[in-house]
Lab assay of single mutants.
Amino acid sequence: MEVRTIKVFTTVDNINLHTQVVDMSMTYGQQFGPTYLDGADVTKIKPHNSHEGKTFYVLPNDDTLRVEAFEYYHTTDPSFLGRYMSALNHTKKWKYPQVNGLTSIKWADNNCYLATALLTLQQIELKFNPPALQDAYYRARAGEAANFCALILAYCNKTVGELGDVRETMSYLFQHANLDSCKRVLNVVCKTCGQQQTTLKGVEAVMYMGTLSYEQFKKGVQIPCTCGKQATKYLVQQESPFVMMSAPPAQYELKHGTFTCASEYTGNYQCGHYKHITSKETLYCIDGALLTKSSEYKGPITDVFYKENSYTTTIK
């Protein structure tokens, strides 16, 4: 009895394709271990004539594949690729409408935090270190965002349907971005203890939790000093293409032309909904596939993004 075979390709990165001759009487799992086709788990399936010449994702289970996976995804987590594939199996079914010149995501599976993050990423200057993220990001900007969303979920250790947080998501993504040249110098002034300067680099240099107003941050924000008295913390120097200011959701007025974009969060910790506000020729609110415009805006804002380049204080 002759062994019926077909020729397929296996890959971990969709760049390096490895030619395989597979036995049609055995499952993919018996031949390769966990195997995925377009995100779908085909591990328990036997090869079919229609699979001839198709590319299958496999887990990096030998040295060659491990090197290829690390170079593309910059992670050695053995569960990463499987999590990416199972997320992709959902995100490829989502709709990605162009809204006001940006790629958004039609609401499904509690994905409003991903839509808000995706919209924000198209408006701030950011370059990702893992080629996987950078490639998928370019495709997302062009309207094909399924891979990018699935990668975000995998890097953030999230599953489809789980509630997510924009600030946490951005923080994970910033860790995989090139923020080497970003720098922030802060000064804390206390009447009792004097003053202390701190220099922050990388992710810490672009994120701040405690106030939404970048102007206020430049002037000074009140913080408790270690001595128990009130101290003032203010920005001395900022070198970065953008800054992200966050605070627990509270009524906040966004003035046209003073910011790049913002995240609105309605609801409580267990259950809520994100919308995205962007400042173009007027203010726009993007909620999944829905767009509304207004000249002014007041609502429960939790993150505001500002364009920056270089700032030095005039406070002496």
Rank of each mutant, 00 (worst) to 15 (best):
Y252V: 09
V42L: 14
T232S: 06
I124M: 08
A150I: 06
T199M: 04
A69Q: 12
P60Y: 07
R83A: 09
T198N: 10
P249V: 04
Y172S: 14
E125G: 09
R184H: 04
F70V: 10
P248N: 05
T199H: 11
K307R: 13
G272S: 01
E125C: 05
G257E: 03
Y269D: 15
T27R: 11
R141H: 09
D287W: 05
P130W: 04
T258L: 04
D63M: 09
V12K: 11
N61A: 13
T75D: 11
Q237N: 09
T199K: 08
Y137T: 03
M170Q: 01
V58W: 03
K307A: 11
L290G: 10
I277K: 03
H90N: 09
Q270D: 15
K316C: 15
E144H: 12
G220E: 03
Q31H: 14
Q216N: 07
R4H: 14
G228P: 02
C193V: 04
P130K: 03
Y138M: 14
K229C: 12
Q216M: 08
S240G: 03
H74K: 09
D287K: 02
K219M: 08
C149W: 03
A154H: 03
Q270S: 12
V236S: 04
T198P: 00
A142N: 14
E68L: 07
G164S: 05
L118E: 00
D303Y: 08
T64A: 13
N111W: 03
K46H: 15
D109F: 04
V99Y: 10
F305W: 09
S79V: 05
K127E: 14
A142P: 04
D41L: 11
C112P: 02
T75R: 06
T159H: 11
H48Y: 14
H256A: 10
A117L: 09
S25H: 12
G272T: 02
Y252Q: 01
Y84W: 08
T55W: 06
I45R: 13
A205P: 03
C156Q: 04
E281F: 01
P241G: 11
A154D: 04
T199L: 07
D63G: 02
Q237K: 11
F148H: 03
S213F: 01
I105D: 09
A289V: 07
T75M: 12
D109T: 06
A87P: 07
F128V: 03
Y155F: 00
P97I: 10
F80N: 06
V203M: 11
W94D: 05
L151R: 05
L151I: 06
T292D: 05
D165N: 08
L200P: 02
D23C: 13
H48A: 13
L179I: 00
Q230A: 09
T292E: 10
A262W: 00
L114E: 01
T35F: 15
T159L: 05
T232R: 09
T55K: 10
